[in-house]
């Protein structure tokens, strides 16, 4: 357990917080890469996911693409791109964004598909346009699952942004890389703890947002329905 205690001591030591190789600047960089990649993925994936969920078309295609994207090893992809473009911020952001796209799309269309068909028919019956239907009915009701997808994307991005250190950038991954390179395992474990804590914090924050933006009716419906009957609802929807 010595390594752990030493690593914790390293993290709380004020001398290691600032400076070129300090925790704070690297934490800032880590967050910057992650936010940039997740933001770009959102811009690309959210419209696609919403379109598929709303129209019900193209689902099989997107499932196939997401499955394939999952199999692609991120590290290999990053090295491959860097060998052609040279070192820089954008190869990393591109690779991280590719990682974030499938869960966001899946969350968005699964969310829209989970909306009760009768509710949608009712919205059409009272004269809503498709656009109003999407923004006033489907998206609010689907928000928990949509944000669930974003949560899982953000987590994967933060965890994977550790590889930034291998392509000339910084971020919290540098502690791991420098530590492993000189067999300073205290430093490596300090880096590992920092990344894990950051991931947990961001996940907690997004979980909180998920709770706050969920319409009261939806959250009540979710909590008052037992898991078994919820699963039955899901299956009832699945059978045409």
């Amino acid at each position: 357990m010595n390594f752990f205690l030493d690593a914790l001591a390293y993290i709380v030591d004020p001398a290691n917080l600032t400076g070129a190789k300090g925790i704070l600047p690297r934490l800032g960089d880590h967050l910057y890469y992650s936010a940039l990649a997740t933001g770009i993925a959102l811009v690309v994936a959210l419209p696609v996911g919403l379109a598929i969920g709303h129209t019900g078309r193209g689902r099989a295609f997107v499932i196939a693409i997401s499955g394939a994207a999952r199999a692609l090893p991120t590290l290999g992809l990053l090295f491959f791109i860097v060998l052609f473009t040279g070192l820089g911020l954008w190869p990393l952001v591109a690779v991280l964004a590719i990682l974030a796209v499938p869960p966001i799309i899946a969350g968005a269309y699964a969310g829209l598909e989970s909306v009760n068909r009768q509710t949608i028919d009712a919205a059409r019956a009272i004269g809503m346009t498709e656009w109003q239907l999407l923004w006033k009915v489907e998206v609010p009701l689907a928000l928990p699952l949509i944000i669930g997808g974003i949560r899982s994307a953000a987590l994967q991005v933060i965890a994977t942004a550790t590889i930034a250190g291998y392509v000339g950038l910084t971020g919290l991954g540098r502690f791991l890389i420098e530590g492993l390179a000189v067999r300073n395992y205290t430093l490596a474990i300090a880096g590992a703890i920092l990344v894990a804590v950051l991931a947990l914090l961001v996940d907690g924050l997004l979980a909180l947002i998920q709770l706050l933006v969920t319409p009261r009716g939806v959250s009540r419906g979710v909590t008052s329905t037992a898991p078994r009957s919820r699963a039955r609802l899901r299956r009832a929807r699945a059978t045409p």
């Binding site: 994977t160 590889i163 703890i193 990344v195 947990l200």
Partner: peptide
């Protein structure tokens, strides 16, 4: 399960030996 999944893989690789 959710908490375990948030731990980055490389972080686990390095801390597990300890």
């Amino acid at each position: 399960g959710g908490v375990l999944f948030t731990i980055p893989s490389i972080a686990l690789f390095v801390t597990l030996p300890v």
